[in-house]
Design a protein around this nucleic acid. Structure first.
Length: 490
RNA sequence: CGGGGUGUAGCGCAGUUGGUUAGCGUGCUUGACUGGGGGUCAAGAGGUCGGGAGUUCAAGUCUCCCCACUCCGACCA
């Protein structure tokens, strides 16, 4: 057992915070609401970045980079967009500091006021569409399929490591198309890429659907999303893909001549996932002993700990481990052999367990005699003794098994927290228990808002390929065509 | 922005009605013994008590002002 570590039962959010901090993933910085992502945490993000980047490129996208600053006037061009982001923008008003004549330090030089203030991007649609205007004249210029990896700033009132920080890292795809159909297909394609990534790499099962108008991205016609269920029963939006229609093309006057020599507005999409995924990863799999990482994203997949008395013994072990390590690395497995003499074996066991390393091997004098090695798996904490000559097959097999087990475990958890609800009384009782409630909804924003006001639950999404089922709205009793997902969310 | 709370060693905290040299846990350094699940013992290093002003013979402790952080709401990827 880890000492002095909160359990999920005692206090879920404390457990999460301590986990992030003690597993060396991230910490709060001197700047309120902004985090420092530490090397171990960044290594996980880096792997996510690399995998996603490949997936984007495999689907025809290229990377570009647009500025951090956006002229204030750009923001007011798209009415809904402005409303959505105005309340959380960091604004640059001056470009120079000077010595404080009245006291110590520096003050903002009042003479260095910018003619037009610059917004630190909360998202880049506006600056990108202002740029695309210059790139697009003909249908031959389309489609444009760009992605950028960047940091953005949203001045949030309350922040939590990874889940909501004032500055966060993300990728944002911005595409331009000649037809509505093509843009819609793009938006849907990308939400499926995200679902694929979440399920097959992060081992997080997700439900896929479309947002209700209330929850839609500011300026979008449709927002597709994937939603995951956390262990405490709260939902977490893991990725969004927006069909923007011609809203931004009209706001920034981006037109092209089609084959019939007629001027048309361009159709757009944007889609993104952020470092918030780290929060989802942590909360989905981890337990009261610390972090649990799916092998495909673990910075260290196998940790090897030697157990020895004298240094001569260590030398003997080193020789055996060297072969094991080389063999595993040749199979593409990331191995850390921790033969530091500065820490005890017990300390190392806890360290790697807490950091979520999927497989740990331990080898000592006893093993050398028997030709064995101890293998421990992080997901179930089981330990087993295997023959040394089995290591090269047993370890990769175990990694695969853990990856699958984590996914299955998370899926069972989600299924157990998902259930249909048919009356308002039942809804109010069940929402307190957490999880997804599948309920009928009359399709109106008014009803959705009332449900939110009374229960803090929001419609997480309307399933795209959901089963059509005639029913009555759980709140208003009006007719409904299908059930939607309700939950309290992060 | 509204309502609580907290600022004392790297981190986590104690410090009573003001009273001598400001403590404890952990971490850190050195050494010895140890080593199959966070070892034991010993010796050390480490402090503008958030900042400023005031009351007092005497302030970590009382008063006032300021600052920072944090939690709970409203807002949100």
């Amino acid at each position: 057992m880890a000492k002095d570590f909160s359990t999920r039962e005692e206090n879920y959010s404390e457990w999460y915070n301590e986990l992030v901090y003690r597993a060396d993933l991230a910490e709060n910085s001197a700047v309120r609401g902004c985090m420092v992502i530490k090397p171990y945490g960044y290594a996980i993000w880096e792997t996510m970045h690399d995998v996603l980047d490949k997936m984007f490129k495999n689907t025809g996208h290229v990377n570009a980079y647009f500025p951090l600053f956006i002229p204030k006037s750009f923001f007011s061009r798209e009415a809904e967009h402005v409303e959505g982001f105005a309340k959380e923008c960091a604004v640059v008003t001056h470009y120079r500091l000077k010595k404080n004549e009245q006291g110590d330090g520096l003050i903002v030089d009042p003479d260095a006021k910018l003619e037009e203030e610059l917004i630190v991007r909360p998202t880049s649609e506006t600056i990108i569409w202002d740029t695309y205007k210059n790139w697009i004249q003909s249908y031959r210029d389309l489609p444009i399929l760009c992605n950028q990896w960047a940091n953005v700033v949203r001045w949030e009132m309350r922040t939590r490591l990874f889940l909501r920080t004032a500055e966060f890292l993300w990728q944002e795809g911005h595409t331009a198309h000649a037809t509505r159909e093509e843009a819609e297909a793009e938006a849907q394609k990308m939400i499926h890429v995200y679902a694929d990534f979440a399920e097959n790499y992060m081992a997080i099962p997700v439900v896929l659907g479309v947002k209700s108008p209330n929850e839609r991205f500011a300026g979008a016609l449709d927002t597709y999303c994937i939603e995951a269920m956390m262990q405490d029963g709260k939902a977490l939006q893991a990725g969004t893909s927006h069909f923007l229609g011609q809203n931004f093309a009209k706001a920034f006057n981006v037109q092209f001549l089609n084959k019939d020599n007629k001027l048309e507005y361009v159709w757009a999409t944007s889609w993104g996932v952020s470092t918030r995924l780290m929060g989802a990863l942590i909360m989905t799999h981890s337990d009261d002993n610390g972090l649990v990482l799916p092998p495909k994203l673990a910075p260290i997949q196998v940790a090897i700990v030697p157990i020895y008395k004298q240094l001569e013994q260590l030398a003997e072990i080193n020789a055996v481990v060297e072969k094991i390590q080389k063999g595993l690395e040749a199979q593409g497995i990331t191995v850390k052999y921790d033969n530091r003499d500065t820490q005890k074996p017990g300390w190392k066991f806890h360290e790697y367990e807490f950091k979520g390393v999927p497989v740990r091997l331990a080898i000592g004098a006893r093993d050398l005699e028997n030709g064995t090695i101890e293998m421990a798996r992080r997901d179930t904490l089981e330990k087993m003794v295997i023959k040394l000559d089995e290591v090269q097959t047993a370890v990769p097999k175990m990694l695969e098994e853990i990856q699958i087990n984590l996914y299955n475990r998370a899926k069972e958890m989600r299924i157990s927290k998902t259930r249909p609800v048919d009356s308002w009384e039942e809804f109010k009782v069940e929402i307190e228990k957490g999880g997804f409630l599948l309920a009928h909804w009359d399709g109106t924003p008014e009803t959705e808002q009332k449900i939110k006001d009374e229960t803090k639950a929001t419609i997480r999404m309307v399933p795209i390929d959901g089963v059509k089922e005639v029913g009555k709205c759980v709140y208003s009793g009006k007719p409904s065509q299908q059930r939607v997902y309700f939950a309290r969310a992060y």
